[in-house]
């Protein structure tokens, strides 16, 4: 007897389907760029410089966001921060509720993550389950000095005790709504839209 699915609908940051017509823009290209710049500065401020930083993007859209953050940091500090990709597929807790997803390779910078300050970068923070999986995946790769979390959008509705250190935009949503993040490297445009739920 399969368990009833009590979890929230899949928040699809990797959803490549078209955004519904009724979607409202909540962040424009300019908003995204300003938010990333601010996050870049916050990361540097918190870390007192770029020493020991490693940025790990969570596929798919966390990866280009991590690269952009690294570019911001390079602009400010003049140092190159290593950027990698952390695939969390094998650590997901919903594997048995969905058709099989292809696992991809994680790309960890050559210096590794031991004793580094790892900043996880993702597009949307929702239930927190992705980040839980990412923390598990990280623990198998090494022992960072600290792990921080940067997200473009925090839409609330956490199901685990997880919070972001750096947030581009706090977006109060109802769980019936969907947040659509599009980034130029993957989708050809930069925008955050919201659809569904009651029109306000």
């Amino acid at each position: 007897m399969p368990c009833p699915d009590l979890s929230a609908p899949d928040q699809s940051s990797t959803d490549r389907s078209s955004i519904p017509e009724d979607a409202r823009d909540v962040m424009s290209e300019g908003d995204i760029s300003r938010a990333l710049r601010r996050i870049g500065h916050e990361i540097l401020e918190r870390n007192k410089g770029s020493d020991g930083l490693v940025l790990l993007g969570i596929p798919s859209r966390g990866v280009p966001l991590a690269r952009r953050l690294a570019a911001c940091i390079e602009e400010v500090e003049g140092t190159v921060v290593p950027v990698g990709e952390l695939d969390i597929t094998l650590h997901r807790d919903d594997l048995r509720r969905n058709p099989v997803r292809t696992a991809h390779r994680s790309r960890i910078p050559a210096g590794g993550i031991d004793d580094q300050v790892v900043v996880l970068v993702d597009d949307v923070l929702y239930s927190g389950r992705t980040i839980r999986a990412a923390l598990d995946a990280l623990s198998e790769l090494g022992r960072p000095r600290a792990v921080r979390l940067a997200v473009l959008v925090d839409r609330g509705h956490r199901e685990l005790p997880i919070r972001a250190d750096h947030v581009g935009k706090n977006l109060p949503t109802s769980s019936a709504e969907r947040v659509h993040v599009r980034v130029a490297e993957v989708d050809g445009l930069d925008v955050v839209r919201i659809s569904g739920g009651d029109a306000r």
Partner: peptide, 23 residues
């Protein structure tokens, strides 16, 4: 191709100190 792509990520595991995932 899906299996071979997944296998590539599994292959990376073999080079790690902890060769185990909870999947």
């Amino acid at each position: 191709e899906d299996i071979l792509e997944t296998a590539a990520s599994m292959h990376d595991l073999q080079r790690r100190e902890v060769k185990k995932v909870p999947t």
